[in-house]
């Protein structure tokens, strides 16, 4: 059973709750502000969702296709953690200041706590869970272990996602440059020197990461 089928099945299981949800949703649509229904009918809008209804989106996370039902206010971080139980991405500050929630969207590193999930429709998300190939750790994960690039580990998933992007962007040519381009990831334990060493080593070894 794919992740997707499992989620759909889970959704249909609790029938009384499911019935209530669906009937509330149907009522909500019937009562939706005219402008939204009108806009959708006009075909002017690619997407429209009323504030008391959930909307369906499709997106790809770690190479798995998902079709999900979400509220417009759900952040990508909350979708990952609360709905999909991908708890590797961490909620540090939830205000875009710490970098613990860093994921890749279409190959670019972004902060999932400030990204609305509904805006990610059709995009490819990679989280820390998607870096390793089976039991083989990603070179950056291995380098963090080899260089002791963490203490408590809370910031580590964000650090590693940011570090992979830092090398791919070509911004890992010197310790100074790494510090500059890793400045969006805060580590309260202060493992910075070892993190820089890990990134420089991955960069030095070369190859595709």
């Amino acid at each position: 059973m794919s992740h997707n089928e499992k989620l759909l099945n889970d959704d249909c299981h609790n029938s009384r709750r499911g019935f209530l949800k669906k009937s509330v949703a149907a009522t909500a649509i019937a009562l939706a502000p005219n402008v939204i229904v009108k806009a959708a009918e006009d075909g002017l809008d690619e997407k429209a969702a009323g504030y008391f209804e959930k909307t369906n989106i499709k997106l790809t996370i770690n190479d798995i296709d998902y079709s999900l039902s979400i509220e417009p206010r759900t952040t990508l971080l909350d979708l990952l953690r609360e709905q999909l139980h991908l708890t590797g991405s961490k909620k540090g500050c939830d205000y875009g200041q710490c970098g613990a929630c860093t994921v890749h969207v279409d190959g670019k590193r972004v902060l999932s706590c400030l990204s609305l999930a509904v805006m990610q429709e059709g995009k490819h998300i990679t989280t820390i869970e998607g870096l390793a190939k089976g039991d083989d750790l990603h070179p950056m994960q291995q380098a963090f272990i080899d260089h002791d690039g963490f203490q408590c580990g809370y910031c580590t998933p964000g650090q590693i996602m940011s570090a992979v992007a830092c090398v791919r962007e070509g911004h890992a040519n010197s310790p100074e440059e790494v510090r500059q381009y890793m400045s969006g990831n805060i580590c309260r334990c202060g493992a910075y020197n070892n993190i820089v060493d890990a990134i420089i080593e991955v960069k030095r070894k070369g190859g595709t990461i």
């Binding site: 502000p33 806009a39 429209a48």
Partner: peptide, 8 residues
């Protein structure tokens, strides 16, 4: 919460 639209 809020309405969300994505005009083309």
């Amino acid at each position: 919460t809020f309405d969300y639209i994505r005009p083309a």
